[in-house]
């Protein structure tokens, strides 16, 4: 049975790179507990010895030649999308 506390939710948010504001936490805790309780009904199903399905149409590794394909999108198109950039690079706050 899912036992998810307020602290667990804060931790889960941090793992998900979400810096929640304080008044979001209680609502999300309640929702997450309810959703996990709902999905736990799967526990009643016997899946002993069943293989999992990750890909539904049986495609397997699709290979292609390792060659350069020219993209219609240029470096400057992509750089232009960045919120902050300088000298052909994306600017971010200090990392270290």
């Amino acid at each position: 049975m899912a036992n998810v506390s307020r602290d667990d939710v804060v931790k889960l948010a941090a793992l998900s790179n979400l810096q929640l504001v304080d008044d979001e936490v209680d609502g999300l805790t309640k929702d997450i507990v309810n959703i996990l309780q709902y999905v736990e009904q799967l526990g009643e199903l016997d899946t002993e010895g069943v293989e999992p399905t990750y890909q539904v149409v049986d495609l397997e590794n699709i290979m292609r030649e390792d060659e350069v394909i020219t993209s219609e999108v240029t470096t400057s198109d992509l750089l232009a999308l960045a919120p902050d950039q300088a000298e052909n690079q994306i600017k971010v706050p200090k990392v270290l």
Binding site: V9, S16, L18, L20, L28, I32
Partner: peptide
């Protein structure tokens, strides 16, 4: 979006 991301992380 946040709910689903966090359920997924869980």
């Amino acid at each position: 979006n946040k709910r689903r991301i966090m359920i997924g992380s869980y």
